[in-house]
């Protein structure tokens, strides 16, 4: 296991997913990519060392980003969570505890900064 911080990016928009994933890799993160909640859950199952999940809220599939976050908070409490959306900020009740919200469009540097803060 390397020292690199392992993060999971969940985004149904391929261009955005690959772009931010590449950006994060360039900044030294080990990045897992998922295009929906089901894929994300699978990857978390396989990689218990994921320290942070960065997920879009608005996604097709069995769960949207908020429900995914709730599920992750429930099953993997240590995993930090950042949610992002082009829509307005959800109510704090909908956000996972200690979760952060970033509105789209985001700059990769802001995401990197937030992740570094949260992962210590």
């Amino acid at each position: 296991m390397s020292d690199a911080k392992k993060v999971l990016v969940v985004e149904d928009e391929a261009l955005l997913l690959f772009s931010i994933a590449d950006e994060l890799r360039d900044c030294g993160f080990e990045v897992l990519e998922a295009s929906d909640a089901d894929e994300a859950m699978e990857l978390l199952q396989k990689h218990p060392d994921v320290g942070l999940m960065f997920t879009d809220i608005d996604m097709p599939g069995s769960m949207d980003g908020l429900r995914l976050s709730a599920a992750v908070r429930d099953r993997w409490p240590p995993v930090k969570i950042i949610v992002t959306s082009g829509k307005s900020r959800p109510g704090s009740a909908d956000l996972p505890s200690e979760g952060r919200f970033m509105s789209k469009p985001y700059t990769p540097s802001a995401v990197v900064l937030a992740m570094r803060e949260m992962l210590g």
Partner: peptide, 21 residues
């Protein structure tokens, strides 16, 4: 309106990604 807002944000996100790349 919400949809449009979402779409615009997504487009901006796409444009932003294209720009940074």
């Amino acid at each position: 309106t919400h949809e449009l807002e979402h779409r615009i944000k997504n487009i901006l996100a796409t444009v932003s990604a294209i720009a940074s790349q």
